[in-house]
Design a protein around this nucleic acid. Structure first.
Lengths: 225, 225
DNA sequence: CAGGTGTTAGACTAATTAGTATGATTTCTC
DNA sequence: GAGAAATCATACTAATTAGTCTAACACCTG
């Protein structure tokens, strides 16, 4: 397979309507149009959810509606493809290897800062909302998000915690979940549920409280074996 | 105002179509029908989201569609009323006063257990999803959830933390948010995003890790003044 | 039981929308 | 520049849906 996507074919998999292409599967023109479509789908879906109409998407992409259907078999396939692509984008923007060599204090700070910085990213916030919203109708979306973003993130964090001899926790995985969950939930409440208006709280306070809590707990955990 | 709802009138507020009612505003018959409607709306909205059709809701409630519109001015008002009612239900099921007198260790355990027990409550999980899903279209829903459920919960937790001399945290409010957020996010990932399949984790491990973390951190915090 | 109110079933409107069909136009390839 | 493929604009379909209307029916009160 060409791009980063691990699995899942969206739409016209087997019997493509496009036949006369060069031996290398993806002509430049093809890739550009597909990009254009996904860009339009991004604006439409992230802005209006799955309720965005195919006409809107086509207009947003600057493309005829018919073209959408020659690239993706139906609306659902288009959504899947978009989410797949967006998740890939956020995966690669995840923990870089050099962070993993840091000491716990700066490491935790950095992780928390990076995570909360996504509050400013309209695409991330909208994607999160979209996935939660549509996971009832399309459970695959939830699964995709969990296996592509959350699980690897928790995994890396848990590995760091158990590998770093300066930290001591009885259950690194659960600890990783607490750290990660408290941050993501903060984003959900502040940005998606508009908590920033009715219960504002500075990011820095969350970061400080979390870092302190983890470090203090670890030190005490060390003492009590 | 009659029932528990704090504010917000849903639908037919000013010029009601119903005039000839007894001097006490709500006849028994009226209340029963309204209850019946909300019960149907509950099943429909929580099952299918806002996409549930008014015909479905009427059928689910065992009531003529016209009746819906004589109790609520439109679909949105019905949804608001339902969510209002559901939130009230969960508010009263919140922290009881006697818990607040417990020692930190059992207190934290209890809080965590109660919070996570909502994973088994289909209504709670569906409500959470619905609110997050529709908060883009109807920001009031998000605000309602935040101000009715989250803010008071955080408030009580933070008050306990700062009032209990056995606990020591520099920022009780942020600490309360970490505790609460990590638990709710666990519910979101496991239940709404189907993480229970692809990254299962026993509730007990979350509870233990969280309680340990908080207690250890507090002790260390006490030492370092 | 008479009069009035609430409720019902069903038809109806007006709008929206996923997906298809078609024929003209553009763009690429040779 | 000819031929072929991709893309376009547009119209069409079949289905769904919020909200309204009407006329029959049920139920309570006096």
């Amino acid at each position: 397979m060409a791009s980063g996507s691990t699995s899942a074919d969206h739409g016209l998999s087997g019997k493509t309507k496009r036949f006369h292409q060069l031996s290398n599967d993806e002509s430049k023109r093809f890739k550009e149009k597909r990009e254009q479509i996904l860009e339009g789908a991004l604006r439409a879906f992230l802005g209006q959810g799955y309720a965005a109409s195919m006409d809107t998407i086509a207009q947003e992409a600057g493309v005829a509606k018919q073209t959408l259907y020659s690239y993706y078999k139906d609306k659902k396939s288009l959504l899947s493809a978009l989410i797949d692509r967006l998740l890939d984008r956020f995966v690669t923007a995840g923990m870089s290897p050099e962070i993993l060599t840091m000491d716990p204090q700066p490491f935790l700070r950095k992780i928390a800062q990076i995570t909360l910085s996504r509050m400013d990213d309209w695409e991330y916030v909208s994607l999160l909302r979209l996935i939660i919203a549509e996971s009832a109708k399309f459970p695959e979306l939830g699964e995709l998000y969990v296996t592509k973003l959350i699980r690897p993130g928790i995994q890396k964090l848990a590995t760091y915690i158990s590998a770093n001899e300066k930290l001591s926790f009885a259950d690194p995985e659960a600890t990783a979940r607490i750290i990660h969950g408290s941050l993501i939930h903060f984003i959900v409440v502040q940005e998606i549920l508009y908590g920033k208006h009715s219960m504002p709280l500075a990011r820095e306070r969350m970061i400080n409280a979390l870092v302190d809590m983890v470090l203090f707990a670890s030190e005490k955990g060390k003492e009590s074996r």
